[in-house]
Simulated scan of single mutants.
Amino acid sequence: MPEDTSTEPTRQTVLSRRNLVKAVGTTGLVATAGCLDSVSSQLSGQQSWPSRPVEIISPWAAGGGADRTSRAVADAAENHTEGTWNVSNQTGGSGSVGMNAAANAKPDGHTIGCMAPEIALFEHLGIADLSPDDVTPLMQYTEFPAALVVRKDSKFKSVDNWIAYGQKNTIKMANSGFGSSWHMAAAAIADEAGVKVEHISYDGAAPAMTAVANGEVDSTAVGAAEVASQVKDGNLRALGVAFDEKVKSLPNTPTLANEGLDIRIGSWLAHFAPPDMTESRKQEIVDVYNSVYEDDGFVEFMNNNGFIRVKRSPKELQQFLQEQYEYYGNLVDKLGISKQ
């Protein structure tokens, strides 16, 4: 359940509003009533929200899960606010470029960032001075397990083929950037399988999948929902999913556990605001996100595209981020992944 973080207006604001009404008198009340919310915002030092287009920054390339779901959020948000919502792609640094841009924006609610497990990895890998402590969590809205993916006509017809080859040869494996959640997933799967891998970085899951489809690399690990359409109608094949059970987006793909690899790993997506945002502004945005999560169009998009809907409130998400920070720190140490 979403946390109740509503705030009461301060006594000073209430008194100022009452004094204003008394000052204009009864005859001026009708003309002034429509302006009271604007005046109250000015008295509290805040403009109304949104007063201009809201920008969601996706830190990875167009076509990946962060981009597609953020656009679905933006479309739904326009049904619940007066104004437009846009998505921009600011790629690089395994997502740190876009996340830093959002974290360093003015905390007025008009710039929102998309984050994933990378926010818990940057400091551990020396990628960026950015951690869960540097953002205002708004809401997690999805998670998706990793899928081990190859080209459709690949010589790897099964997980066993992939393992047998990788134990004697080096497998070229694309990821969405050094230190990204899909780099970690690939490294963890390779470690469990005991195969040799050369990790090759791209600016997101979509370019990584394209590299596999074009034959530039042998395989990749990306979100099951992200790759589902290309498995169904494109040039890719999923060998296994790192989850407890088969997933709806890849119904014919076995779990890696069933293929002999005892591993469960993946990613999640959430939106955040810059730090130092007022509680009242944060609550305005969270209220909209609560409506977005239940919006018919958003629910339909998520279901039709195989994205698992998982909701965490700001308080729950903050705790989860701290747990992720510790988890990925331990995983980096275990896998022996060097800092940049």
Rank of each mutant, 00 (worst) to 15 (best):
G65H: 00
P59F: 09
I112M: 13
P207M: 07
S16W: 12
G260H: 04
F298C: 09
T84V: 13
Y328L: 14
Y328T: 01
I189R: 03
T170M: 11
D276A: 13
D67M: 02
R18W: 14
S48L: 13
A116P: 02
M139P: 12
R237A: 10
G297T: 01
T10F: 07
L130N: 02
D191C: 08
P254D: 01
A205S: 06
G240Y: 01
G25L: 13
N252I: 12
K311T: 13
G28D: 08
S229W: 11
M139Q: 14
V222C: 08
M115Q: 09
A103F: 05
K168N: 07
L130D: 05
A186D: 09
D133G: 11
S41Y: 08
A206S: 12
T170E: 14
S229G: 04
A77Y: 04
I56S: 02
A120F: 07
W182R: 07
P275W: 01
V54F: 10
T170F: 04
A33Q: 10
G25T: 06
Q46T: 11
E143L: 15
D218P: 05
S219M: 05
S44N: 07
K248Q: 15
A221K: 03
D67T: 00
S38I: 08
S70E: 06
I308Y: 15
L239F: 01
G329R: 15
D37H: 10
D203A: 12
E259Q: 03
T170D: 12
I337A: 07
I337V: 10
I56M: 08
S291R: 15
A72K: 01
T69Y: 13
P274E: 04
K315T: 15
Q47F: 12
Q324D: 14
S154Y: 08
G177D: 01
G223M: 00
I263F: 05
Y165M: 08
P117Q: 04
N86H: 13
S180V: 02
E192H: 03
G179F: 00
H110N: 06
